[in-house]
Simulated scan of single mutants.
Amino acid sequence: MTTPERARPARAPRADALRNRDRLLAEADRLFAAHGTGASLEDIAKQAGVGIGTLYRHFPTREALLDALLQQRFEQLWGRAHEAGSGSPYAALAAWLREAAGQSTAYRGLPSSIAAALRDTTSHLNTSCQAVREVGARLLAAAQAAGEVRTDLDGTDLVLMANSAAWLAQQDHAEDRLDRHLDVLLAGIRTPRRVE
Score class of each variant (00 low, 15 high):
Thr2Phe: 05
Thr2Ile: 02
Thr2Asp: 08
Thr3Trp: 00
Glu5His: 04
Pro9Phe: 03
Ala12Pro: 03
Ala12Lys: 14
Pro13Tyr: 06
Ala15Asp: 11
Ala15Tyr: 02
Arg21Asp: 02
Arg21Leu: 04
Asp22Glu: 15
Ala26Gln: 12
Ala26His: 06
Glu27Lys: 10
Asp29Ser: 13
Arg30His: 15
Arg30Leu: 14
Phe32His: 08
Gly36His: 06
Gly36Gln: 08
Gly36Ser: 09
Thr37Gln: 05
Ser40Asp: 11
Glu42Val: 14
Glu42Cys: 00
Glu42Tyr: 11
Asp43Gly: 05
Ala45Cys: 10
Val50Thr: 12
Gly51Tyr: 07
Thr54Phe: 01
Leu55Ile: 05
Leu55Ser: 05
Phe59Leu: 04
Thr61Met: 06
Thr61Ala: 07
Ala64Cys: 07
Leu65Phe: 07
Leu66Gln: 08
Leu66Val: 04
Ala68Thr: 04
Leu70Ile: 00
Arg73Glu: 14
Phe74Gln: 05
Phe74Asp: 07
Phe74Asn: 11
Glu75Met: 09
Glu75Asn: 13
Gln76Ala: 13
Leu77Pro: 01
Trp78Lys: 04
Glu83Lys: 10
Gly85Val: 02
Ser86Cys: 07
Ser86Trp: 06
Gly87Met: 10
Pro89Met: 06
Tyr90Leu: 15
Ala91Thr: 14
Ala92Phe: 05
Trp96Phe: 11
Glu99Asn: 11
Glu99Asp: 15
Ala101Arg: 08
Ala101Pro: 12
Gln103His: 13
Thr105Ser: 13
Thr105Asp: 02
Ala106Cys: 09
Arg108Ile: 09
Arg108Asn: 09
Arg108Cys: 05
Gly109Val: 05
Gly109Asp: 06
Ser113Glu: 15
Ser113Thr: 03
Leu118Arg: 15
Leu118Ala: 09
Thr121Gln: 14
Thr121Cys: 03
Thr121Pro: 00
Thr122Leu: 13
Ser123Val: 08
Ser123Thr: 11
Leu125Asp: 02
Thr127His: 12
Cys129Lys: 00
Cys129Pro: 00
Val132Glu: 01
Arg133Tyr: 02
Glu134Met: 10
Val135Asp: 12
Gly136His: 03
Leu139Gln: 09
Leu140Gln: 11
Leu140Arg: 10
Gln144Trp: 04
Gly147Pro: 09
Glu148Trp: 02
Glu148Cys: 06
Arg150Met: 10
Gly155Tyr: 03
Met161Gly: 06
Ala162Gly: 12
Ala162Thr: 11
Ala162Pro: 09
Asn163Glu: 12
Asn163Pro: 00
Ser164Val: 10
Ser164His: 09
Ala165Tyr: 07
Leu168Arg: 08
Leu168Cys: 08
Ala169Thr: 03
Ala169Pro: 05
Gln170Pro: 02
Gln171Cys: 13
Asp172Gly: 14
His173Gln: 14
His173Tyr: 12
Arg177Trp: 05
Leu178Thr: 11
Asp179Gly: 07
Asp179Thr: 12
Arg180Gln: 11
His181Arg: 06
Leu182Arg: 03
Leu185Val: 15
Ala187Phe: 03
Ala187Leu: 13
Ala187Gly: 15
Arg190His: 14
Arg194Asn: 05
Glu196Tyr: 06
